[in-house]
Nucleic acid binder design. Structure first.
Lengths: 111, 111
DNA sequence: TTCTTTTATCGTAATATTGCAATGAATTAA
DNA sequence: TTAATTCATTGCAATATTACGATAAAAGAA
């Protein structure tokens, strides 16, 4: 097996899972951190920043790009990466919507 | 390889990734949805709700329990599962903190 | 042109994940 | 007691992920 049965779930659930999955690796969290906290849209100096091999970083960047969380533009031999604002905000909203239904009411904690 | 190098990242980054990872499957999102939107802390009637085998659901529940997002109490032959409020809110806060640094400022979108 | 720099891709190895049937363990019902 | 119910665990097969060296591709420098 090893194959997720996406047809059993709603589109929203699959989308949330997709976003969460790509955030589910510390290297990709670190990349996002870097892109969020850096004024300039720094390119793959991430290779120096994180301690991973160039090929590995490139792979993580591709995964982030594939789900649309980041985008990159070629500048000479370099690539300028940055957060894809629109998609980032869409994800942010979607998770906020989930977290808003926080079980803050006392009667929720029943076990 | 296939082994995540957690020592390269901060504790916060590893924790965020851990939470995101466990949310990174539609079945587990569905389970969370169910627990959040159901008044009663329904047990593994999730097996009927989702279309997965009992063993599979049990495995997903264990993963959610291992990262602390849910908890379960035994009630006879059944198990009553519910969201672990404190940990859920901790995760919610942590992601909110990340999303707050949203690249809403115009100068961010530079590629 | 050739050389260097930067990034992407390929190929591979090690490990993890997903899913389920079968089996266990524990409680309740008869 | 025996049978039924509920959930966890084991074992397995198929697939996915993580990481990196080696190589390719593209642009700039010499």
């Amino acid at each position: 097996m090893g194959l997720t049965k996406t047809d059993l779930f709603t589109e929203r659930q699959n989308q949330l899972a997709k976003w969460a999955k790509v955030m589910g690796h510390p290297a990709r969290i670190a990349i996002i951190d870097f892109l969020l906290h850096t004024k300039a849209c720094i390119n793959g100096d991430l290779v120096d920043e994180l301690g991973l091999a160039q090929a590995t970083i490139s792979q993580h960047l591709r995964e982030l790009k594939e789900v649309g969380l980041i985008q990159g533009t070629i500048e000479g031999t370099r690539v300028n990466y940055c957060i894809h604002t629109e998609n980032w905000n869409a994800m942010s909203d979607a998770f906020h919507e989930l977290f808003v239904h926080s079980p803050s009411d006392k009667n929720r904690q029943c076990c």
